[in-house]
Design a protein around this nucleic acid. Structure first.
Length: 200
DNA sequence: TAGTAGCT
DNA sequence: GAGC
């Protein structure tokens, strides 16, 4: 496992081996079944290209009312629990003091992008944000803590983990594009990103 | 003013 | 990739 720092983003290349990746995908199947992926919109009503759901006591949602964490899926069901193997990654790399209360599950299909944004809907920014890449390669772009200025990009591969803490916690970041079908982890192709956060 | 987790 |  290689570790690299890019603008204070702590990137663990190949943190998860193939077996661990496949195990996580297996654990996500029942979660996606009981809390189906949905396509959120921004506050201005524009659809995001990513599809998402969550696990944990809270889920991140967005619609015309804006970005927020809530305790129910938009269709009314509770969010499933975060599987232990996912919590283990957090405990190893982010914090052994407190578990995350949200695991956002983002699915990137062909053509999905995620514009530059900050993760700032949480109550306490002293907790890091941890992100796990599964499936297709993704071009990750890192900016600054305010909009504008130079950015840097890096390809994330299946099994990579990114930790955004300290100066990186409120940095703008996004996904410019994925290389659809570059990985065989997901039978239908695409990329799953797990984002672990302490929301409250 | 938000807008900007999108679109040009 | 910049700018809105």
């Amino acid at each position: 496992m290689a570790r690299l720092l890019l603008r204070d983003f702590d990137i663990r290349k190949a943190y998860l081996d193939g077996h661990a990746q496949a195990q996580l995908v297996d654990m996500l199947r029942p979660i996606l079944k009981s809390a189906p992926l949905f396509r959120p919109t921004t506050a201005s009503g524009k659809e995001m290209s990513v599809r998402m759901t969550s696990a944990g006591s809270l889920g991140w949602v967005s619609d015309k009312a804006g970005y927020r964490y809530q305790d129910l899926h938009p269709k009314g069901m509770s969010w499933p629990a975060i599987p232990d193997p996912i919590l283990d990654i957090w405990r190893d790399l982010a914090s052994s003091e407190r578990d995350p209360d949200c695991c956002l599950i983002n699915y990137y299909g062909e053509g999905t992008r995620m514009g530059l944004h900050q993760d700032k809907d949480e109550a306490d920014f002293s907790w890091p944000v941890l992100s796990v890449s599964l499936g297709d390669d993704a071009l990750f772009r890192i900016g600054n803590t305010t909009r504008g200025g130079k950015t840097e990009s890096i390809w994330l591969n299946s099994g990579d983990v990114v930790i955004m803490g300290g100066p990186a916690r409120l940095a703008y970041h996004g996904i410019d594009r994925i290389r659809f079908s570059s990985s065989r982890l997901l039978p239908k192709g695409g990329r799953i990103n797990l984002t672990l956060r302490v929301a409250r």
